[in-house]
Nucleic acid binder design. Structure first.
Lengths: 236, 236
DNA sequence: ACTCGCCTTGTTGTATACTACATAGTATCC
DNA sequence: GGATACTATGTAGTATACAACAAGGCGAGT
């Protein structure tokens, strides 16, 4: 009897694989904002059937990356900087709350020491690799939020992180922005360890606000270059 | 030629209909927390095929009402009061931020006047119907959050509202809780209209905290009664 | 009597066929 | 020549068949 083997490369199910693959293509601007696409086309490209593909698309729709046009097709949502601004502001609210909790009610400060080992280091020990710094930056802010112990806030904060990553990561492609991030994280940690909530909140707010502004400009440049290089990058 | 007509009762698509129907059954405790269910059974009951049903279940999974047990089936998630507490705390954070915005930076105060017409009324004009008061209560808090203009905070707040509605609505089945809600909303509105952010935040916080505590007890009673009445309410 | 392994049954995961529908292109009529 | 109706084509929405898999029952062997 012939056994048909499931040759899933990464995940146990095709839906997840499709999800990761589509997201990758969006992040790499292979699927450009504004592109239209049909389920059958994409299914063929990714080599899954429509069923798991639609599952993936629905997930991505919920996360705001794609939009369903009923009976017509799917659309890669254009980058909406107003929305990113609002997500950054939301981050500020959640992280400032977490910072206050850390200073006032949270007992276990060990997480702060761990963060200091990463961020409060001499210039020579600082990392440069954009992807690594980006991941560490996300971890830094996530760790602060974790201190609240509120899983719902953590969840929402994680979702925000997922949604802004597409532009946020570009921040670390500039050396001076990496330097600034190290500096700012260091002083934030000092304020948190010193138990000074107002100062920590103020530093955190301006840290995120600066990033918000920088990232917008960097992204606009990046987009223009991507468009010039491959004006018809998306299929059909 | 025979034309097969789509007899969708409510929505344009079956997935949405399935979603509403399942949610209704969960809210009515026809599907009890802890119940296991299979897609084929439920599909037959709701009279849709598995495809739109799964779409509905995935949506409900994202909202935390059901849980997918891969290769095994679906589970109606038990009511988790710790989670509800965290959602209430999250509400407090968002609504307090909105209240501050309302007092300090928002120009257009007309929404507050509209709310006052509903909540700041003589006892004789107060509504009693639990469903109506519940809807008005949700609208009250939503309106405050809308004042921020931050659509992401609004969205998250709306999701929180959806997720806690299953227990929150029970709050208004008790007359004294309706009375308390009217009283508390009225004083909150006064503080907001007076532009006193600290007072508004303090009132809002205690208002939500009280509700959190009351609702927990009411729900536990309700659940016990539901369990006694129909110990095997779920199918199979 | 107990344990181990096979096999039956029920479940989701996936692929695919088919329906209803939207859209655009074309031919026809005025 | 312009507007309009019709038709061809491609799309998502839906139903369903089948494969892969999990789990538990049941029997055989000890």
């Amino acid at each position: 009897m012939v056994k048909i083997v499931n040759i899933n490369k990464d995940a146990g199910n095709l839906a997840e694989r499709a999800y990761e693959e589509i997201k990758r293509r969006i992040f790499d601007f292979i699927l450009m904002p504004g592109d239209r696409l049909s389920e059958s086309d994409l299914a063929q490209q990714i080599e899954v059937s429509r069923t798991p593909l639609r599952q993936a698309l629905q997930q991505l729709q919920h996360e705001g990356f794609v939009e369903a046009l009923p009976k017509v097709g799917w659309l890669i949502r254009p980058l909406d900087f107003e929305k990113f601004d609002e997500l950054y502001d939301f981050r500020i609210l959640i992280e400032c709350f977490a910072a206050r909790e850390l200073c006032t009610t949270v007992k276990d400060r060990s997480a702060l020491r761990t963060l200091a080992l990463i961020w409060s280091v001499p210039a020579a020990e600082r990392l440069q690799d954009a992807m690594k710094v980006s991941a560490l930056d996300e971890a830094f802010h996530q760790t602060i939020v974790e201190s609240t112990g509120n899983r719902e806030m953590m969840r929402t904060h994680r979702e925000i992180t997922e949604r802004i990553r597409i532009i946020r990561r570009l921040d670390f492609t500039k050396d001076n922005r990496v330097t600034a991030t190290y500096d700012e994280h260091a002083v934030i940690l000092v304020a948190l360890q010193g138990g000074r909530p107002d100062e920590a909140q103020q530093l955190l707010t301006s840290h995120i606000e600066i990033s918000k502004r920088e990232v917008r400009q960097i992204t606009l440049d990046m987009l223009q270059r991507a468009r010039k290089r491959e004006p018809l990058a998306g299929q059909n």
